Simulated assay, not measured.
Amino acid sequence: MTHTSLSKKINMNGTDVYYESYPNDSSKETIILIHGFLSSSFSFRRLIPFLTHEYNIISIDLPPFGKSGKSRGFLYSYHNLATTVIQIAEKLHLNKITLIGHSMGGQIALHIGYLRPDLVSEVILLCSSAYLKKSKPLLIFASYIPFFHIFVKRWLGRSGVEKNLQLVVHDQSLIDKDMEEGYLAPFLEDDIFPALTKMIRDREGDLSKEILHEIDIPCLLIWGEHDKVVPLSVGKQLNKDLKNSKLIILKETGHLVPEEKPEEVFLYIKQFANKTADSC
Rank of each mutant, 00 (worst) to 15 (best):
residue 1 M to G: 11
residue 2 T to G: 00
residue 10 I to R: 13
residue 14 G to M: 10
residue 16 D to P: 00
residue 20 E to I: 06
residue 20 E to F: 01
residue 21 S to P: 02
residue 24 N to Q: 11
residue 25 D to P: 02
residue 25 D to T: 04
residue 25 D to Y: 14
residue 28 K to R: 11
residue 29 E to C: 10
residue 30 T to H: 04
residue 31 I to P: 05
residue 33 L to Q: 09
residue 41 S to K: 14
residue 43 S to Y: 01
residue 44 F to R: 04
residue 46 R to G: 03
residue 47 L to D: 00
residue 52 T to K: 11
residue 52 T to W: 10
residue 53 H to T: 04
residue 55 Y to I: 08
residue 58 I to M: 13
residue 58 I to V: 14
residue 60 I to T: 02
residue 63 P to R: 14
residue 66 G to H: 06
residue 66 G to S: 12
residue 66 G to R: 07
residue 68 S to G: 05
residue 72 R to P: 02
residue 74 F to Y: 13
residue 74 F to V: 03
residue 74 F to Q: 07
residue 76 Y to M: 12
residue 77 S to Q: 09
residue 79 H to E: 12
residue 83 T to Y: 08
residue 86 I to C: 10
residue 93 H to Y: 14
residue 93 H to E: 15
residue 96 K to W: 02
residue 99 L to F: 14
residue 100 I to T: 02
residue 101 G to F: 06
residue 109 A to M: 09
residue 111 H to E: 12
residue 111 H to P: 00
residue 113 G to H: 00
residue 114 Y to C: 09
residue 115 L to P: 00
residue 116 R to L: 09
residue 116 R to T: 09
residue 118 D to V: 02
residue 122 E to N: 15
residue 122 E to L: 13
residue 122 E to P: 03
residue 126 L to E: 05
residue 128 S to P: 11
residue 129 S to I: 09
residue 130 A to P: 00
residue 131 Y to H: 15
residue 131 Y to E: 10
residue 132 L to R: 14
residue 133 K to L: 15
residue 135 S to V: 03
residue 138 L to T: 01
residue 140 I to P: 02
residue 140 I to N: 04
residue 140 I to H: 04
residue 143 S to I: 06
residue 147 F to G: 09
residue 147 F to Y: 14
residue 147 F to A: 13
residue 149 H to L: 11
residue 150 I to L: 13
residue 150 I to Q: 10
residue 151 F to H: 06
residue 153 K to T: 04
residue 154 R to I: 09
residue 158 R to H: 11
residue 158 R to D: 07
residue 161 V to W: 11
residue 163 K to P: 09
residue 164 N to L: 12
residue 166 Q to C: 14
residue 166 Q to F: 09
residue 168 V to L: 03
residue 170 H to K: 14
residue 170 H to L: 05
residue 172 Q to E: 01
residue 172 Q to L: 05
residue 179 M to E: 01
residue 182 G to F: 01
residue 183 Y to Q: 04
residue 184 L to C: 04
residue 184 L to A: 08
residue 185 A to T: 01
residue 185 A to I: 07
residue 186 P to N: 04
residue 189 E to F: 10
residue 189 E to K: 12
residue 191 D to C: 10
residue 193 F to S: 08
residue 199 M to F: 14
residue 199 M to H: 04
residue 200 I to W: 11
residue 201 R to F: 13
residue 201 R to V: 07
residue 203 R to I: 13
residue 204 E to R: 15
residue 206 D to S: 12
residue 206 D to E: 14
residue 207 L to W: 08
residue 209 K to Q: 11
residue 210 E to V: 02
residue 212 L to K: 03
residue 212 L to D: 05
residue 214 E to R: 12
residue 226 H to R: 13
residue 228 K to H: 11
residue 232 L to M: 06
residue 233 S to F: 14
residue 234 V to I: 13
residue 234 V to D: 09
residue 234 V to K: 08
residue 235 G to Q: 05
residue 237 Q to W: 09
residue 241 D to T: 05
residue 244 N to Y: 06
residue 244 N to L: 14
residue 247 L to M: 11
residue 249 I to K: 05
residue 252 E to T: 12
residue 252 E to P: 04
residue 254 G to T: 03
residue 254 G to A: 06
residue 256 L to R: 01
residue 258 P to S: 07
residue 258 P to E: 10
residue 260 E to G: 03
residue 262 P to Q: 15
residue 263 E to P: 03
residue 265 V to M: 00
residue 267 L to Y: 15
residue 267 L to I: 04
residue 270 K to S: 02
residue 273 A to M: 11
residue 274 N to Q: 15
residue 274 N to E: 15
residue 276 T to K: 07
residue 276 T to D: 01
residue 276 T to P: 00
residue 279 S to I: 06
